[in-house]
Amino acid sequence: PPQTPIRAAMNSIKMLRGDLPSSGDQPSSKLATYFKNCTVDPTQGIQKRLEMLGQVFSQMFGEAVGPHCIAYGRERFNLGVRLYYKVMEAMLESEEKRLSVQNFSKLLNDSTFHTSLLACALEVVMATYEESSFKNGGCSHGEGEQAVRDLCFPWILNVFDLSAFDFYKVIESFIKAEPTLSKEIIKHLETCENFIMEKIAWRTVSFTNVSLNRRIPHVCRLL
């Protein structure tokens, strides 16, 4: 039988949940080994950052959707954390193969890298839920629909006070590292990329910076 929008949405969410390890709110033993191989062990920093960002996320989610929905925000955040750990592990495996190194101390102690990666994981989770809300018309009543729109990209950048440029940097590696992403989600991430490139990555100083880099061939063409 033809798939209804509601069934399609349920399947997407089920797939997202099913693809993630159930014990994934903690790093796997393999990921923990990568942490231990670092010159400076990033484990505590990562835990603290997750606690802090989890509180900010739940609070802002509640402000956008309503205080009675904070628990849903927390649930989405936890799902995002599982995806964040899973993708981080895949990225490190790929980097280990490519660079023949096991010490990723600098990368794993880079707060911007972690925040960007977590933001991307959460964008995937949110898009899976929100896309279904749009498709099945579940939020056709004005207030709910507005709340869902409020959570759309670039909402997550404001929540984590993350620059669009830094978020942009993780997208491609994220897609490479997570082969189970649906084509709708990949399309969504590509839309985010285009939105960043065409609109929100540009600042007043960007044009000055472009002018200062005339020697780079791409920049010459751009000018």
Binding site: M91, L99, F104, L107, E184
Partner: peptide, 21 residues
């Protein structure tokens, strides 16, 4: 699958993007 355009070269990865070697 969706035809995503991968722009990174073979020798580039997340480490280079965050300035780590």
């Amino acid at each position: 699958s969706h035809d995503y355009h991968f722009g990174l070269e073979e020798h580039e990865g997340i480490s280079e993007l965050f300035d780590c070697d």
